[in-house]
Amino acid sequence: MSQKRPTLKEIAAIAKVTPTTVSLALRDHPRISEATRQRVREVAAQLGYRRDANLAHLMRHLRIPAHRKEYPVLALVSDLDRRMDADPHPNSTWKGFSGRAEALGYSPQEFPIKLDGLSAPRLQSILEARGIGGVIFAALRSPEFVKGMDLSRFACAAIGNALRDPMLHRATSDKFSNTVLLCEHLWASGYRRIGLVIPKSQEIRVEDTFLGGYLTFHFRHQHGEWGSPIAYEGEWNQARILDWVK
């Protein structure tokens, strides 16, 4: 059975100094004379005192003034054409992510792989070199990128539906219910010809949840004044959309 770990107070009582002096002496603080440091070390050795490296690291962190502390980084990986805080919709994602990260004691940082020209191996080497263990994938239009990383080395999660393989824990909006709710608001505002236009690639990525919400709304109201939804491929075709609206 292991013996009880001696406390600083017990060492102080035998060495006839204060616990604060013991703490400083065991850290070789220059405020304490060499003779006192030696006496404290001898008493600590006699009692079988062993320094707790994890506790020492924590105490060093707590002693640093708040304005000088470096908090562990939580990475947000995206492949947008611009940074998330520069785009209205992704900006709301960034605000939610960064606010929650800071509340939990992390420093949020975005890694825009497209803007910075980062390959999967290069991103992984940067994260490992900086000791970043938490990674959130968001707004990934090229989910194949992730397959070039060894995710077993990180704690990972995703925002949105783009990343399907590997399947990670994710946070995403309820697109089905949101679409129904949007149509209900439009209906209550007096609109009767409510249409849906969406990129086909996006609808596939979200497993037809926008379309499902749209059709569910029309099924509930059982009215005929609605157009067939358009899921377009390729570039936005304004002429086709205007013709559909007419």
Rank of each mutant, 00 (worst) to 15 (best):
E34H: 10
I32T: 00
R37A: 14
L55Q: 09
A15G: 07
H29K: 15
L55V: 11
P19T: 12
Y49V: 04
P19F: 11
P19I: 10
A45R: 10
V43Y: 05
R39D: 08
A45V: 05
A44S: 12
T20N: 08
R37N: 05
H29I: 13
K16R: 08
V40W: 04
L47Q: 11
R51H: 12
P30C: 03
R27Q: 10
A53W: 05
K16W: 05
P19D: 12
T21S: 10
A35P: 00
A15Q: 05
A15K: 09
L55P: 04
R41Y: 06
P19W: 12
P19V: 13
H29R: 15
H29L: 14
R27I: 00
D28I: 13
H29A: 15
A45M: 07
L26A: 15
L26W: 14
Y49C: 05
A35D: 14
N54A: 09
V22W: 03
A56E: 11
R50E: 09
T18F: 07
V43Q: 10
S33P: 12
P30E: 04
L24P: 00
V22E: 01
R39V: 01
E42M: 11
D28A: 15
D52R: 08
L55I: 11
V17Q: 01
T18Y: 03
I14R: 10
L55H: 08
V43C: 12
V22P: 03
I32L: 00
L26I: 15
R51N: 05
I14Y: 05
R39M: 09
L47D: 01
R27T: 04
I32N: 00
S23G: 08
R41C: 05
A13D: 12
G48T: 11
A13I: 05
P19C: 12
